[in-house]
Amino acid sequence: MLRINNKISFSFLITAALFMASCKKDHGNNNGGDSFDTSGVFTQQDQMGRPAINTVFVGADRKNEFNMTTPSAMSAAFKADFLAKLSAFGYTQNALGQNADAFGGLLVTDVLNAKLSGKTTFFDGTNVLTGRDLADDVIDTELLLIFGGSTGASNPGLTSDHINSNDKAFLTTFPYLASPF
């Protein structure tokens, strides 16, 4: 009970503090004669780091909760769920040499790791999790790591969907994504 009360007052304090800060900021903005409305406190609806994490590893009853959990708190709240899912997949080890605890521990903190120098890719055969490029076949990478076993050769019918690229060429200039259909 005490814990619940603490939680409520804690979140109330944060909301109140953000609201006060928000009022202050608005004032500064209006003084600048800028009509672009930036006011208010915005509350989380969805979040995402790596592809397909919430969809695959989190049960239907906790999907909203996962989207509301800050990445630094995900491991404590969801690691057991991830390990249970890996176990259900028959997972023992992947081609990176990670056992279930290591792989589940990596995946549960749903952030995208990106290097600030050199090749940025989800996986290109050499570099692993140094970013996510538009052309990366992230589904095959994840299928391979989940179902491919320690050599990547297990369950060959489940380790690639055989869709290996996008249906439209990317641009060489900003914003890089292809024009819409």
């Binding site: 208010g40 406190v41 915005f42 509350t43 989380q44 609806q45 969805d46 979040q47 995402m48 780091g49 990445p71 749903d110 952030v111 995208l112 790791n113 990106a114 290097k115 600030l116 120098s117 140094t130």
Partner: peptide, 17 residues
Amino acid sequence: MLGSASSINVWAESKSK
């Protein structure tokens, strides 16, 4: 503008009011 670390962790959020 992203600091001096060699790598970063990135995630996106949608937030509504």
